[in-house]
């Protein structure tokens, strides 16, 4: 017992420089991420409406009041539905397109490297630049989509795609898929390239069709990295700011997600309490997903 303690003491002394080297980064992470996060959770239980900053109740404990408030807020309720729709559509479309593209790029083709690089371009483009670019493409006056659509006779006259309640959501989905898909694709492609050629050959000899080989051979092998990238992707999609950057949640809140709702409450309506409450709800979702993510990593190691 005694000797173990001495060992630990000596070990700690030997590793003291390590602790000192680690300290600045740890303090920075604590101060810049952990502390604000805890403070944000506290805020969700406080009266913190800046519009009523002079009132008596400002900065007092509110209990679950903020949570109650958002659950009777019609915009918030609408944003829950939008968030589910946003997440599912984004995830499924990105996954399917990324999978098809990765499978295509995994073939021995001429110019494969060039195709790979060019399809990766959207990933490198800064989000706001992408938003401006797509806003331009969708524009009713100058957008190429309208010019082409009118010329091909799809629509009689130019449509304001982003100003329209029915189409705005899908326009933003298109941008988000365009921007997020390459990340998925590279991830899947790397996993695919890790599969030795013999695996396919023996499957072919057994007489499997391409479809069967995909479901019975390829998919089970890449299952793990696929789950990993999917979880990461969902977290990213839930925290997406595109709906705000493009249409500020509009028109008529048709593109409002929980994320943009929290932003609106905080920086448009200046109510930090309810903003934090809705952000905390979102955080609970991402925490569950993170937990799954960490479990997958741990199993991998």
């Amino acid at each position: 017992m005694e000797s173990k303690l001495i060992y630990h003491k000596r070990n700690f002394k030997k590793n003291l420089p390590g602790y000192l080297l680690l300290a600045p980064a740890t303090i920075a992470v604590l101060a810049l991420s952990i502390y604000p996060m805890i403070r944000g959770i506290f805020l969700s239980f406080m009266n913190y409406n800046l519009v009523r900053a002079r009132g008596d109740s400002f900065q007092t404990f509110a209990g679950l009041e903020n949570y109650k408030k958002i659950f009777v807020n019609e915009i918030f309720l609408k944003s829950i539905g939008n968030t589910i729709k946003w997440t599912l559509v984004n995830l499924i479309v990105q996954l399917v397109v990324a999978m098809l593209l990765a499978l295509a790029l995994n073939q021995k083709l001429r110019g494969r490297a060039a195709f790979r690089i060019l399809t990766l371009v959207p990933w490198a483009v800064p989000p706001y630049i992408a938003v401006m670019t797509f806003t331009f493409l969708y524009s009713a006056q100058v957008g190429i989509l309208n010019i082409l659509a009118v010329r091909l006779g799809v629509v009689a006259e130019a449509v304001s795609w982003l100003g329209n309640k029915g189409s705005a959501f899908w326009c933003i989905v298109a941008l988000s898929v365009w921007k997020g898909m390459p990340f998925q694709m590279v991830f899947i492609l790397t996993a695919l390239q890790g599969i030795p050629g013999e695996v396919y050959e023996s499957a072919k000899i057994d007489g499997g069709s391409a479809w069967q080989i995909f479901w019975k051979v390829t998919l089970p092998i890449i299952k793990e990295p696929l789950m990993l990238t999917t979880v990461l992707n969902v977290i990213g999609i839930l925290s997406s700011f595109y709906p705000w950057m493009m249409t500020e949640g509009g028109p008529l809140y048709s593109t409002e997600t929980i994320y943009t709702f929290a932003y609106r409450q905080a920086f448009v309506n200046h109510d930090f309490g309810t903003a934090s409450a809705s952000a905390v709800l979102l955080f609970i979702f991402t925490t569950i997903l993170t937990w799954i993510y960490l479990r997958i990593i741990r199993e991998k190691n």
Binding site: S33, P36, M37, R39, G40, L43, I235, L238, S239, F241, Y259, A262, Y263, A266, F272, A275, S276, A279, V280, L282, F283, T286, T287, L289, T290, Y293
Partner: peptide, 14 residues
Amino acid sequence: MFPGVLLCIPFYII
């Protein structure tokens, strides 16, 4: 994995 919007509210106060 923390949502940016959850952090930027307390960030503003800090």
